[in-house]
């Protein structure tokens, strides 16, 4: 089973770091070298990937139109779902990227009948996806405090908002809960639904399990097995200033966390996770539907064999003449 393959892979990775950083005491490798390598892989990989995409031209302007076109002035255009200019496209892309507009389309239900569960699975997908991506983003930004000194001003504000519930000590971050819930949801829907299980690949379960491991190890360190924050920060600022030092007293749990993050980063450009960059380049979304207004150029517009009117008239001259149709050549 594909989910099993992914689970095994993640377990292997955990064992690897525990043996490596723990038993074999290769802490410098797991704490410094591998994170650097992962970031290099990520940057080079993503840049190459985007260049590779950009290397192929967009021969035709093929937006998928999701509403009324711009035509006669008195017909109300749907400027966001069917934009005809740059501003509209930016709006459409913003909706797509920040609010997952297309996924949201699934939510409409009406005329339910029968006693069964309401048609809401797609709405959950939108909500789950959005919750996951935003909590990931917040957590990602929050982590700058481990790398930057002084801590950027917005991070305490963000933390206060995130801990608004005022539960527990240390303060419970809402995003920690949200990411656990949303990633688990995204994982289990793939396992539970026969439809999704049918086409899910190992590559679909793997990143989810990876992120789940990262979140769990992070949460354990914050709330349960407290990690030496000062030491971690030393490592973080050292890494960022290219002056890496490996302070003592950082537990194994931290190495698991860091290693899995590094794996995720390194894995990123070679997997479906590149959708983060690709969504900006999707020709059905990032082009304006102004096809008849502005000519789109195809750089490889092919020369093709055509049939000309002259050839046509030559073939049919007699019948055309009989039918009294005008001719170019008598």
């Amino acid at each position: 089973m594909k989910a099993m393959t992914s689970l095994m892979a993640v377990i292997l990775l955990i064992l690897l770091v525990m043996l490596g950083a723990g038993a074999a005491n290769l802490k410098y490798f797991f704490g410094v070298i591998f994170p650097y390598a992962a970031i290099v892989l990520f940057l080079v990989g993503i840049v190459l990937r985007v260049l590779k995409w950009a290397g192929s031209p967009v021969p035709f302007r093929i937006p998928t139109t999701g509403g009324q076109q711009n035509s006669l002035p008195w017909i109300k255009q749907n400027k966001l779902d069917n934009p005809h200019n740059l501003i509209g496209v930016l709006g459409r892309m913003a909706l797509e990227i920040f609010l997952f507009r297309s996924l949201f389309r699934n939510t409409k239900t009406e005329l339910k009948n029968g006693p069964r569960l309401a048609y809401g699975s797609s709405k959950w997908l939108w909500l789950g996806g959005l919750a996951f991506h935003y909590s990931f983003l917040v957590i990602f930004i929050r982590h700058f405090k481990y790398f930057a000194e002084p801590v950027p001003f917005f991070i305490p504000i963000m933390q206060n908002l995130d801990g608004l519930l005022q539960i527990g000590l240390p303060l419970l971050y809402m995003t920690d809960i949200i990411i656990l819930l949303s990633v688990s949801y995204l994982f289990f829907r793939r396992v539970v639904s026969p439809q999704l299980r049918y086409f899910s690949l190992a590559a679909d379960y793997f990143p989810l399990l990876l992120i789940l491991t990262i979140s769990i190890s992070g949460i354990l360190m914050r709330y349960f097995y407290k990690v030496d924050i000062v030491a971690v920060k030393k490592l973080g600022t050292g890494l960022l200033s290219f002056n890496p030092i490996l302070p003592e007293g950082i537990g194994l749990l931290f190495y698991v966390h860091l290693f899995m993050v590094s794996v995720l980063i390194a894995y990123f450009p070679f997997s479906k996770l590149v959708h983060m960059a690709g969504v900006f380049m999707s020709p059905t979304r990032n082009l304006a539907n102004n096809n008849r207004m502005r000519r789109h150029i195809n750089p490889w517009n092919p020369d093709v064999k055509v049939h000309t009117y002259e050839e046509y008239e030559d073939e049919f001259r007699d019948v055309m003449k009989d039918a009294g149709m005008p001719l170019d050549k008598e």
Partner: peptide, 25 residues
């Protein structure tokens, strides 16, 4: 096919799932 059966059972919109809903009705 088992892979699509949950769609037929669980989608209760009569326009998005006409086959399942017709059976049910």
């Amino acid at each position: 096919p088992a892979d699509s059966s949950n769609f037929l059972l669980n989608n209760t919109n009569r326009f998005s799932n006409p086959v399942g809903q017709t059976f049910l009705r």
